[in-house]
Computed example of a mutant assay.
Amino acid sequence: MTQPLPFGSPGGKAPRLEEVMRDVARGNKDAFATVYDAVVDTVFGIAVKIVRDRAQSEEVTQEVMIDLWRQASRYRREQGSVRTWVATIAHRRAVDRVRSAQASADRDHATAVRDQQRPYDEVAEQVQTRLESEQVRRCLRGLSELQRQSVTLAFYQGLTYREVAEALRTPLATIKTRMRDGLIRLRDCMGVTT
């Protein structure tokens, strides 16, 4: 069981924080309350200066005070005052909070940018396809009957030259010539450059 602190020592002097920290390290809640009251305003002030958000600063202050309770045994009097040690913890926690918030904002921004960037505009793609289809139909109307039939069977039905020749009952050499001439005229009509 922990012993109460001699807060009212003879002569009215309160114990120094460095002495009280030994009792905090032993789990004395009254000692922790004393240290808490002595440093909480400093911790909050550091947090507000770095984080610049009151709610976030309050969270940082709470985290620092929990760290103080849990890590009290790590405090070394010869390395500095309790206030300096706590201020260092507060500064690190506040900087970590700012970095974490910035990283989160960066991730959110990257996600938003990625979601806005589409690989293509679907409406524009549909309009372009429709316009190209209309242009192909118009250009096909400019071919001779044999050319149009040959190209249509080959490209829209997937027939080979031989199958087109059989379907149209036309010699294979004629189909090849008509297809070549028809494709040249289609290319010129559509404005395709090679």
Rank of each mutant, 00 (worst) to 15 (best):
P6K: 15
F7T: 15
G8I: 12
G11K: 08
G12Q: 14
K13I: 13
L17C: 14
D23P: 06
D23M: 13
A25L: 08
A25M: 03
N28T: 00
D30W: 06
D37N: 12
D37I: 04
D37G: 12
V40G: 01
D41L: 12
D41Y: 12
T42P: 03
V43N: 00
I46Y: 04
A47W: 06
V48S: 06
K49H: 07
Q56L: 15
S57A: 08
E63W: 00
V64W: 04
M65Y: 06
D67F: 07
R70P: 10
Y75P: 06
Q79C: 13
T88N: 15
T88D: 12
I89Q: 03
A90T: 03
H91G: 05
H91A: 10
R93I: 07
V98Q: 01
S100F: 07
Q102G: 02
A103W: 07
D106K: 12
R107Q: 15
D108I: 09
P119W: 06
D121T: 00
E122D: 07
A124E: 12
Q126H: 13
T129K: 12
T129Q: 14
L131W: 02
R137K: 11
G142Q: 13
V151L: 07
T152L: 14
Q157W: 13
Q157L: 14
G158A: 02
G158L: 10
G158W: 01
R162D: 12
E163H: 11
A165E: 07
A165R: 00
L168I: 02
R169T: 11
R180S: 15
R180E: 10
R180Y: 14
C189Y: 04
M190D: 04
M190Y: 05
T194N: 15
